[in-house]
Design a protein around this nucleic acid. Structure first.
Lengths: 115, 115
DNA sequence: TGCGTTACTTGCATTTCGAAAGCTATAATA
DNA sequence: TATTATAGCTTTCGAAATGCAAGTAACGCA
């Protein structure tokens, strides 16, 4: 994993946010975390079918950006879970706004997450 | 330009939204449009220094997704401008949420857009 | 005739994505 | 004891996206 955006492109808060969130998967992982998912296989089970390597990469980036915390929930064998930090929880309004917009403009929307 | 996400990955409104908005540039172009920028060179002048081909591609995608309208503001020579549709304007709450989050968690944020 | 402006397009090297297969440690089962 | 299963990843490699630089087209102006 190489860091994708080590420098800041500008001082704009939108730009700073997109440097972390600006791709097709990161906010979906955060959505799952908001829904209470914690484990690797739970994220893998989502209907968007994220590739294993992409998920691992995103979880590492989210940890590096301090949006999630990784901790072992058991030893032998070591198993891990991911939890949103306060910074990560702070993205709920962004997700809510996306839900509102998505519902308003995509008729194919079937599932309506309550965040 | 090939279309990046012709099919829908799921019925989730967040997923549907990210199929259009999920990259590092699209929401920045929309931010500029919200600020009243209309012309190619105005978008090019933004401090994030978008590449010319990427800008052209994003404007085409935004038009295809019906978030912006392209129209000639003069003939001979033909010159074009871009304006947000209602669907595009509908993204303001998303941008506002990103500004709030970006301001809260990035100290390096200098510019504070008022959307 | 030559230069500047606007709105792009093209070429090409680098980077990222993504599907599939593989790996490691341990538990459960035959 | 050997095999299979489970969880949490990592590796490989071809395809697609990105981004820098240069080029193009149509016109106005000097």
């Amino acid at each position: 994993m190489k860091n994708k955006m080590a420098f800041k492109r500008s001082g704009c808060p939108i730009t700073n946010s997109l440097d972390i969130l600006g791709d097709k998967w990161t906010l979906l992982v955060i959505r799952d975390l908001v829904f209470g998912k914690k484990r690797y296989q739970e994220f893998m089970a989502s209907s968007e079918r994220i590739a294993s390597n992409i998920l691992a990469d995103r979880l590492k980036q989210l940890e590096a950006s301090r949006l999630v915390t990784r901790r072992a929930y058991q030893q032998k064998p070591a198993r891990y879970e991911y939890v949103l930090t306060e910074k990560g929880e702070g993205l709920k309004p962004v997700l809510r706004a996306l839900v509102v917009w998505g519902k308003a403009y995509f008729s194919i929307t079937k599932i309506t997450p309550t965040i």
